[in-house]
Write a protein that binds this DNA or RNA. Structure first.
Lengths: 392, 392
DNA sequence: TACTTCATTGCAAACCTTTGCAGCACGACG
DNA sequence: CGTCGTGCTGCAAAGGTTTGCAATGAAGTA
């Protein structure tokens, strides 16, 4: 892993020459305030002057110093985006959507990864606080109370976590888990495992709650396995445990774990979906590329990113922080309205789920053990999953 | 995709009360400069005073304003990281390595995605310029001359692109492509396709050059297909073309394309590796999870991230930008030394490559068409790939 | 002509912090 | 007793920008 080759050259390249508003003012023969206005309030300056100033600025390669500007206006036109794990393919679509939405409003997005570490999360919020106008906290791992406390330092929008009093963007994983369970029960599974994710994940708690209720309602038994790391290795690590537990179907915390689990089961000689059905959550691109293709609960990540940015900017605009005028601020408790948005999820049925032990044969097929590979849920099996498809 | 549910509440949460160095000074009965020193030069302040100040600061929840600090010191302790496409799993390991390395040196990393768009790249550099101490440009898509120009605005380190006069971190994809071609020729392939990536990619040019030379030297024929988008769809889109071209092996620009290609070939009924062998580049985690597992050229992404950060910080430290003292700077041409580091790559042989039409049978197997699925390159076939394994 | 209105520009304070320099007190040394 | 060094602290300028206010001059109105 050492580097093969290092070449070193020395050159006399000119260093960065910071050109300021003063230089432009001097060059164009006006006061610095006029230059400033040329950029931030063009309608206040004589068209002739303006073009002259602009020409000089162009000439000198002047660029307004955003940090200095932020110091006085209190707005940086930056948004912070804190992510538990960039390596999780769930996030990139969210990031991209947020970035494009922000760009439309003349904002830039800075992404930071926390490695699923709550401490890093907190530190990052502090570091970002004064350099951005607001922070999007995605799938945070820290406590609600800490989040509330941090929200006093910088405007926050939380994604994938419900915290009262703060704007939140949620995905209805409860509904998703319910559909998944009902789908599995409809296929004839009665003994199902839930592969838990990180302990401190709101999504994890929601899924657990909803899946438990749905299983109970449908007369199926739900075993909870976890918590686990929300990654491929987290999934493959529990393969043995899944086999021993004797369940015929598994709902995983996310696609990555589902894929890892399938891989792990494969290594143990357990075939999916013939012997065990697996459902994931997220519908990452990858879930369409593995064999078998993954049945999964699709989450609207792009919409989440866009919505979160909108909510942040809206909240941000109505309360210009760092106001001028001496230290008032505490006096008038700012009245702020916080919305919580819940986005729909959808079950996408592909090839990783198949008939279970209690399936009623859909057509004259060999064994109740299920049809050949790549056979999606047959049309003969209702997915209403209210329990009546089970009978016995 | 609409949101199911929106709840809105209004609360009287106190707004962000920005507490400055002044408040702390007032509270602890010292001058602001003493407070400042308490944080940035603790050894200069009386221990008693220090604890008192720290207590007050803690009490009031004071946090130094990094923007204001940067304005005067000229250092933000931030690093910008510009990436062509976060959705490409090649980058996350690089990002994480860079972040961890930066954190060790008390720096923060801000990541930004450009969507493979050169214009966005340039804009992002400008936006970041005054908010970071330097920028890591990863797999840039803009021209060398523009990069050089931008490097006068902010210290730059370039990854996956060679530009003279600037510090660069390169991966030896030339060597990688050579090994891949030799591996394929050794397996008995004589007609090979190279799936090109983005036109403006340095890696792309390097691979093309090296693969061409290696094929010529080994007496094989190389067909170049492309340029293409460096994604799964970019790969699957050329499946038809690959089949028509009649090659028996393909070297793809990266793993994503290789995986997409395999998927596309599968849809056309072409089996990998039995009918066509496929080699990728990058060794992303995903390449171990697809079937067949991907043979690929592993690139040291983590090392690249760490090295890039080191080089940036080193370059940065010796020349403190935004120096105090009036507008000198042009006068003394700053002498700066730029290193270019080349990192090794390694061919990882898995299941997507198998014997070609000119293979000599390794053991008494059925047809020269190749063994069953999941059979990696048999131990009987040497991978020295100097060409002598071909014979006839 | 005198007065108002308007557009344009300059002035200077403010944002929050760092830092060179000077001042102060105190102990030590000659 | 005078001088010096040392340890600590305060003063004020500086960094690049925005912005309320005032000043200027010209045009419009009565």
């Amino acid at each position: 892993m050492g580097h093969t080759h290092v070449t070193t050259t020395t050159s006399d390249e000119g260093a960065a020459v910071p050109v300021t508003i003063r230089d432009v003012a001097r060059a164009s023969g006006v006061h610095i305030s006029t230059v400033s206005r040329t950029f931030s309030a063009p309608h206040l300056v004589n068209p002739e002057t303006r073009v002259r100033v602009l020409a000089c600025a162009e000439d000198l390669g002047y660029r307004p110093n955003r940090a200095a500007r932020a110091l006085i206006t209190g707005r940086t036109h930056n948004i912070g985006l804190i992510i538990a794990d960039i390596a999780n393919p769930f996030f990139p679509p969210l990031i991209k959507a947020a970035e494009s939405q922000a760009r439309h409003r003349d904002y830039h997005v800075f992404v930071a990864d926390t490695n699923e570490d709550p401490t890093a999360e907190e530190e990052l919020v502090h570091a970002l606080a004064k350099q951005v106008d607001g922070v999007l906290l995605c799938s945070p791992r820290m406590s609600n109370s800490l989040i509330e406390q941090l929200s006093r330092e910088v405007p926050l929008v939380v994604v994938n976590r419900q915290v009262t009093g703060l704007p939140c963007v949620l995905m209805d994983v409860g509904q998703g888990a319910r559909s998944a369970i009902e789908h599995l029960v409809g296929l004839g599974h009665r003994s199902i495992a839930l592969l838990g994710g990180p302990r401190s994940s709101w999504t994890n708690r929601e899924m657990r709650r909803a899946a438990g209720a749905a299983a109970r309602a449908a007369g199926a038994e739900l075993t909870v396995l976890g918590p686990n790391a929300p990654t491929e290795v987290g999934g493959s690590a529990v393969a043995e445990q899944v086999r021993r537990s004797g369940v015929s179907a598994v709902l995983a915390y996310n696609d990555l774990m589902a894929i890892g689990l399938i891989e792990g089961l494969d290594a143990l000689g357990v075939r999916v979906p013939q012997e065990v059905s697996v459902v994931g959550v997220d519908d990452i691109t990858l879930s369409r590329l593995t064999r078998p293709k993954l049945t999964t609960v699709a989450t609207p990540t792009g919409a989440a990113g866009r919505t979160a940015v909108d909510m942040l900017l809206q909240q941000d605009i109505e309360s210009p922080r760092g106001a001028r005028g001496s230290g008032a601020g505490t006096a008038l408790g700012v009245r702020r309205t916080t919305a919580q948005v819940m986005l729909q999820t959808d079950l996408v049925i592909r090839d990783s789920t198949g008939p279970g032990p209690y399936a009623r044969p859909a057509r004259p097929l060999a064994a109740p053990r299920g049809p050949g590979p790549h056979c999606p849920a047959g049309p003969g099996i209702p997915t209403t999953a209210t329990g009546d498809a089970v009978a016995s």
